[in-house]
Design a protein around this nucleic acid. Structure first.
Length: 85
DNA sequence: TAGTTGACCGGAA
DNA sequence: ATTCCGGCCAACT
């Protein structure tokens, strides 16, 4: 944990299955509630499979993007994880 | 060191 | 309810 990105990665990796966090929430947990944009920028550059970025959505409830397939697949994953308890 | 970019958020029309 | 504009923050070049 050295940079904001490291914190964000750790936090996102702690998100339990069947649950979703908004970028703002993650940013807040990372230390800056206003760094939601930065969080997105970091996720975009991060390609770590250990980081379920698909569980991170916008505060509106919509999903931003997804470096691994797209928002469509992202939604699919969320539904799947929530269904398969 | 400074400038640019980006998966956002909130308010206003 | 939807669309447009400005603002904030961190990382990358």
């Amino acid at each position: 944990m050295k940079t904001f990105a490291d914190k964000v990665r750790t936090i996102v990796g702690k998100i339990p299955r069947g649950k979703t966090m908004t970028y703002k929430e993650v940013a807040t947990r990372a230390g800056n509630p206003r760094a939601a944009r930065a969080v997105g920028a970091i996720m975009r550059k991060n390609y770590d499979p250990a980081i379920p970025c698909h569980r991170v959505i916008k505060s509106d409830g919509s999903m931003g993007g997804y470096n691994r397939g797209g928002a469509v697949v992202k939604e699919r994953i969320l539904i799947k994880e929530q269904t398969v308890v």
